[in-house]
Design a protein around this nucleic acid. Structure first.
Lengths: 342, 342
DNA sequence: ATGAAAGCGCTAACAT
DNA sequence: ATGTTAGCGCTTTCAT
């Protein structure tokens, strides 16, 4: 004798009727917002249980002006970094009873703005990953989106808190490592030219150039994916560099794969570094030397900043994770005779 | 003379007042639901533009009984399979003007049920990935969740459409490949014992055992992660198998890493296969032989099934993607003397 | 073709 | 302590 599925879910009025009380009393009992006689309260709870009542989040949101939802806007759900951020954020938010909406702008900077604004209307705040948006556009957008937390970049002139990694110091560590290993010709495979984190890496390169004029550092545009790294192999070989810094782990892996196809050995012929320390990095053969960025923690901290904003507590400060150098198997002493290659 | 940020967003009443018309007229113009005099319509549009008005999705949802949102519930956002599903789903849904909510049950089967039911109230339908939920519980849950689309498993006795890969045939392909390469002792590293896709793989094992009694096939519990595969290396060596089938690519990679540490070579000493064909699989050294599952398409098709359900069109049929065998570098002829190992 | 008014399900004054 | 009522912002009868 299975009952047919309930056509429409129960409303607070059903519960009130069944318990023989007013709507407000039900509301008060459910939310514990005011004192209600224990006998009545019990009746209400019983009625609610019997009807399997739960309040409509929609109706509550409308009247409370609060959705208990935040959205995370990312340029590309394919990127391992955003997986981590999303995971960290989603779990942290869930612990505080918040839901998360995810919006993927599919790499389009145009879309990103529209998407963020539209999405904003369905939630209480935005966690924004917009690495390539020009800073001026970003500032304007941030005002529309408020409250908003930035991930992986900052915005000068805005009070929006950011949660990011210190890409500059991470790359500096990698550069110093290669220098200490005797490398004197280095090549950086650049990521998206407009992106904030690429910019920071270039800054590290400049600092390094000033500090160590004896080391030649070149830059070549490359990209952010495995395929980009793979395709860069010719330029890498032509450069004569003995140490190559990939924009990220994916690029480094792609390069290593291409190098392997050419019969070159890492780190014997060439040292290679990545960036991010994605889960597989340590398991490559050889394991990838990289700068480790705690992506899930980035997401978690992004939530904490957001929670502060939502609770109108003191706006949290921007927080920077310093990447940790992971010296593994793809870097080693510079080869004695860099020219001597197959 | 920058205006201060608008405190509250504009309502339809603001637009009506500014255009000198009634609320209904504004609504009709905005939604194109009825004929409105062109002159009036123009005034409304102008007013809406000037006020940067967009209707509150919340209020619309409440009155329309439709949120234009679907949720995807996954057991673990860390799993590469779900990344793909989420990506495919999110983009496909976005094309149809739908938003996506993501809920991560953090592996807890208990939570999963509560989470799904709770999340369901905030959206129009659920895309459910619940590989380990007992089938009876699942059936009950499906009724509460309706409409719902299942990913990566089916539920007998329920009309909920499913989108999944045919894990059984995928594993069969892998088994046949190893057999053709002369392997006569095989070992399967099992995933989560309760999981549907593990179950299907075991079915393939049984079929294969019947068909090819000359091949010995063992099963050992292992897991679903890199670390699980890595930790299985002792059991693998003890088994005397010359061909090992990892539950998935992660497990296979972990195993290969462990094998490497022991000085064993793949595929010379041992053949290894994965499952899924995650993005890195082809780039490992050697590239991983695996059964390719198009995860993003799984997500995309899940959306299409959901869209059918939401449009109350004929409920879509369950759809099965047949994994494609990717014969790459980790499999090869069985070694002449399987016992002769370091 | 347009407007007035009811109502989606809920909360929070405001009464009592 | 409990009930009555207004109202969140919108769509949709129902009149005109």
């Amino acid at each position: 004798m299975a009952g047919r599925p309930q056509e429409r879910s129960r409303t607070i009025a059903d519960v009130a009727a069944r318990a023989g009380v007013s709507l407000s009393t039900v509301s008060r009992v459910i939310n514990g917002t005011a004192k209600v006689d224990e006998a009545l309260a019990a009746k209400v709870r019983a009625a609610a249980d019997e009807l399997e009542y739960t309040a409509s989040p929609l109706a509550r949101s409308l009247v409370l002006g609060r959705t208990n939802t935040v959205a995370v806007v990312v340029p590309d759900l394919e990127n391992p970094t955003f997986h981590g951020v999303l995971r960290g954020l989603s779990r942290a938010a869930a612990r505080d009873g918040y839901h998360v909406l995810v919006a993927d702008s599919a790499e389009s900077v145009e879309e990103e703005r529209i998407l963020a604004v539209e999405t904003r209307r369905r939630c209480d705040g935005i966690v924004l990953c917009a690495p390539r948006m020009p800073e001026e556009d970003l500032r304007r957008l941030l005002r529309q989106l408020d409250p908003v937390v930035l991930v992986n970049r900052e915005a000068r002139g805005s009070s929006a808190p950011a949660v990011t990694a210190d890409y500059r110091s991470g790359l500096t560590d990698l550069l110093e490592l290669l220098r200490a290993d005797g490398h004197r010709r280095l090549l950086y495979l650049a990521g998206a030219p407009q992106s904030s984190s690429n910019f920071q890496r270039l800054a590290a390169l400049r600092d390094f150039g000033v500090l160590h004029p004896e080391v030649a550092v070149e830059v070549t545009p490359c990209g952010v994916n495995f395929a980009d790294g793979h395709d860069a192999v010719d330029r890498v070989l032509a450069s004569g560099a003995t140490g190559v810094l990939g924009f990220n782990d994916l690029v480094a892996m792609g390069l290593m794969s291409g190098l392997g196809e050419r019969g070159l050995r890492v780190p014997d012929d060439l040292s290679v570094t990545g960036f991010d320390d994605i889960p597989f990095a340590r398991y490559l053969t050889p394991p990838l030397t990289t700068a480790s960025v705690p992506v899930a923690e980035l997401g978690e901290q992004a939530w904490h900043r957001m929670a502060e904003l939502l609770g109108s507590r003191t706006p949290g400060h921007t927080i920077l994770f310093r990447p940790r150098l992971e010296q593994r198997g793809t870097t080693g002493p510079a080869p004695a005779s860099p020219g001597a290659r197959p």
